[in-house]
């Protein structure tokens, strides 16, 4: 499976300036593994040490937030668009 991964502005410096890259993988986890193998500088911003998704990263397959469709196990089909967006959050705690 080949997916197009859209890269947010804040991650582009660590991705060599790319706005989108084509990555192989049958699940979101596989896509992110391949992405971070080819671009190791972004790994700490995408994944925790145990391979789970970083708390403050939103990952979407097409229109779906992967938190609701299986997380890193969410399936990826040929031609899917995967969007990475930093979560927008804060607070007084």
């Amino acid at each position: 499976m080949t997916a197009l991964v859209r890269i947010p502005t804040v991650l582009r410096p660590a991705m060599g300036g790319d706005t989108a890259v084509t990555v192989e993988g049958a699940t979101v986890g596989e896509v992110l593994d391949h992405l971070t193998t080819s671009h190791p500088d972004v790994k700490s911003q995408l994944l925790n040490a145990d391979g789970s998704l970083h708390r403050f990263l939103n990952v979407y397959v097409n229109d779906d937030d992967v938190r609701y469709i299986g997380g890193v196990d969410a399936p990826v089909s040929n031609g899917d668009e995967i969007t990475l967006l930093p979560a927008v959050a804060g607070g007084t705690l």
Partner: peptide, 16 residues
């Protein structure tokens, strides 16, 4: 999305 008086989080679907 944080549903809190001390935290906020933009809904992920609204963000996309």
């Amino acid at each position: 999305a944080a549903n809190s008086a001390k935290l906020y989080e933009i809904d992920s679907r609204i963000l996309l």
